[in-house]
Design a protein around this nucleic acid. Structure first.
Lengths: 217, 217
DNA sequence: CGAGACTTTGAACCCACTCAATGCCCGTGG
DNA sequence: CCACGGGCATTGAGTGGGTTCAAAGTCTCG
């Protein structure tokens, strides 16, 4: 794969080699708990894949890179969710911890049928989310994308009204197919319109749900 | 769902009520073969979903609509493929035949485990395709999108070099998140550069594979 | 051969990007 | 405690690729 390490990720995130906190030793079918600090790589495109990953706490970004460094985050995952499904035992994407994250590795059992009902269900949820995100990337403008993002993040958290965003503006931009400047400008515009309040850099309070919903349909 | 019939689809495709050629009667677990002429609806967003669909011949588009008529095709499917996976027994998308198409309906069996291994595999293939398409829609320009499209269509057909495109320019545009004018302009540019030849309106011959590949990475 | 549907081409516009500078937050050290 | 610094985030000005609007061309099927 002609995928290269790019300058944009230079600083803090990729270099430190991470040691998983527990050994992947047990001979049963699910095991191995690992802690990943912010920015740590969980797996890389091209690696062999024989596991799924369940998040115990924290958050994960799954993404792809072009040779010139353009990045598309295909999904965010949060506590309780499972990710890392692959069709052919090869990882087609990169996965990194967004913040301090603990992950349980679910080794794909040879007796796959036992789990496949549950796995199928979770994979299908990922499929529907990805296909719905195609509409956002293909057909919605910047304002609609951010509105859709805030709505999605809110729906995936228990606390309604106050949204915690563990990811940076660059992560949001790379998820929405925008630049950080555009994301920032849209946040500002929503703030000026009184639709949201930025209670912290990574916390958003939605003041006018109706206005937000009206933007995405 | 606030999805409305839009003016763009006015003319030929949606109105004629289609009658499936065979009754969905049998009491076993997989049955009901149906023929769909070009433009016929296979299922609609919001309908109950208790089946998958296997294409015997023909081609299908799966898409979503916004209230104002903007459309995003999330996937094309061809002979031999299975589509219509849903996470929660409700269709989240529309599916239509692109051309004359025959479809076998696979009723989701209550003993889902028997099929789930195979179904899981096909669903995962759809998932990987959708996630890879996110990169195209989020981060690639018009030329790169068309090059990726031609490459994908070629890889999914046996005949290399000559690509059959059953779908219209509008379908291609709505798959790539572009307008028909842009798609047409890019085709023209590729033709002028000698990269492709348009042997028919719906047939493309690739003259310079290397140039095409160079565009997408 | 005519009509409608689809495609191609042209010209002007606009939204998001690029480039650039400033601001903010927080951890670190004097 | 405050000054400094680095990493993000915000804001501004100008540019450009794709869209929009419009018209001409082409294919197909009665």
């Amino acid at each position: 794969m002609a995928l290269i390490e790019t300058s944009r990720t230079s600083a803090y995130s990729r270099d430190p080699r991470i040691v998983r906190s527990t050994a992947p030793s047990t001979l049963g079918s699910l095991q191995a708990v690992g802690f990943f600090p912010a920015g740590a790589e969980i797996y890389a495109q091209g690696e062999r894949s024989d596991s799924h990953y369940k998040i115990e706490f924290g958050a994960v970004r799954v993404y792809r890179l072009l040779a010139d460094g353009r990045r598309q985050i295909s999904a965010f995952h949060f506590a309780g969710e499972v990710f890392g499904f692959e069709a052919d035992a090869i990882h087609h994407f990169f996965a990194e911890a967004i913040c301090a994250t603990n992950i349980r590795v679910l080794r794909t059992s040879s007796r796959q049928n036992e789990l496949s009902g549950e796995l199928l269900s979770m994979a299908l949820q990922s499929l529907v989310r990805a296909q719905e995100h195609l509409l956002v990337l293909g057909r919605q403008n910047a304002m609609e994308r951010v509105a859709a993002f805030l709505t999605e993040m809110s729906e995936r958290q228990d606390d309604l009204g106050n949204i915690e965003l563990p990811m940076s503006r660059m992560d949001i931009a790379d998820y929405l197919g925008l630049t950080i400047e555009t994301v920032s400008r849209v946040f500002s515009r929503l703030r000026q319109q009184g639709v949201i309040r930025l209670t912290g850099l990574r916390t958003v309070e939605v003041m006018k749900w109706q206005a937000l919903q009206h933007m995405i349909d």
